[in-house]
Structures are given as C-alpha cells and as structure tokens.
Design a protein around this nucleic acid. Structure first.
Lengths: 106, 106
DNA sequence: ACCATTCGCAACCGATTATTTGCATATATT
DNA sequence: AATATATGCAAATAATCGGTTGCGAATGGT
C-alpha cells in the first residue's frame, strides 16, 4: 500500500484525531466518543495513521493507547519549506527583471 | 463537492504540479509534458486545484496559464501551527509533572 | 475559408476508500 | 468459571478517485 503522510492528513476525521491525541495518548474507544462514527471506523483510521508511522501503540492490559509521533509531522513541514523556497525565488526572479528594467532606464 | 486543500495535496502528482508552477505559470500542455500522464489527466488535477483555489487561470488567446495562489498554502501552515501549539503544550504538561516530582523529592 | 492546436466537459472503467456489520481474541470483573 | 469490556480482523457495500477516451468549442496559422 502506498500510504504517505499527505494521504493520512487528507481525511478530516484523521486530522481531528491527530489534534485530539496530540495532547494526550488515548484508546480507540475514547477517541471514538469524540466523533459521530463507530469504534471500528476510528480503528481503521488509526490503522492508517499507524501504517505511515504517525501514531504508535502502547498496550496496557486490554487497552491500547495510541500516541502521536510528532516527528513524522516534520515531513509536511519539509515539503512546505521546499515550496516556500521555490515560491520566494520566484519573486527574486521578478526582482531581477525589475532591476534590469531599472538599469535599462539609465 | 467538499474539496479542501488537504485533499488537494494528497496526490503526489498534484504536489509535483504545485512545485512546478510555483516558479512560473504554465499551460496544461506544458505541465503534462513533465509527467507520464495525458493532458486530460493533468487537466483534471488542475480542476481540483482550481476548485480549492490553489491555482488561478489566466487566458491568453487559446492558451490558459495556470498560476499558483501561494496565499492558499498558508492554510496548511495554519493547521500545522495549530498542531505544534498543542504538541508543545503537551511537553509543558510533562514539565509540570517532572517539576512536581522534583519538588516532592525535597 | 480551412485546418491544426489548445483546451474543457462528460462518460466510462478499474482501483481504492470509508464505513458498517459480524466475529474472534484477550483481558478485566464478579 | 461466567460475564462484560476492549480491541483487532475480515467481508460486504457504497462512494470516490485517478486515468483514459471521445467529443465539441474557441483560437491561431496558412
């Protein structure tokens, strides 16, 4: 399965789950109580989040606590930085053009 | 169709298109030449990107130049910031616990 | 006027997704 | 030992997605 973090955060429920467990590790049942879906639906979302290593599991008796792997979120940051770099250099090109026009004026 | 920016960047081809036109506005044909897909496939991606206002069109004769709306990318940033805020406050809570333990030791 | 080019739109198809339902397993509680 | 709880796994289904094909409209070149 080609699952990456960008696909993981594409779903609004998964984004909500991420924000929810960012502050505190939670069990599937506890998470499901915050949404209008069944436990199984949440469980599947958690499996997807686990597949791309956004969450890790920690068993405690019969309960499984899901906690966020914050480092993984950096991958989004990295892509954004890549974009910003290109985006800003675009304005630099524009600056060059303006500079050329300015010089031609002289 | 409930299309948001997170769903837009979920597809790797669309992310590549974003990076491609970040530096320079391009026509669908020119964009398609960079990928192994047909023009129509690229056109569909562009339509999705346009639906969530990530790109704007500018017609010039029979050509349509697609240019990136960089401001829209901030929405990703905003969500990331929201997460980081929660994530870091989590460590602050941990700090409090550690501080309490420290004080109890005395 | 004629033809090539650029492009959007709609229909279709195969693959994937999200969700529900049902069942099995393991752990608590009584 | 019997029951309740927490969870994962598998099958079924409806929706969605990415891609292709075919078509028509608008524009530009000859």
């Amino acid at each position: 399965m080609r699952r990456d973090i960008f696909q993981a955060i594409a779903d609004p429920t998964r984004r909500a789950i991420i924000l929810l467990i960012a502050s505190q590790a939670m069990t599937p049942n506890a998470i499901a109580e915050h949404f209008n879906t069944t436990r199984q639906a949440v469980s599947k979302h958690l499996r997807i989040l686990a597949e791309c290593q956004l969450v890790t599991q920690e068993q405690s008796g019969r309960e499984i606590y899901y906690q966020l792997n914050g480092n993984k979120m950096n991958e989004i940051d990295q892509w954004l930085e890549q974009f910003k770099k290109i985006w800003e250099s675009r304005f630099n090109e524009l600056d060059k053009v303006l500079l050329t026009l300015k010089n031609n004026k002289k």
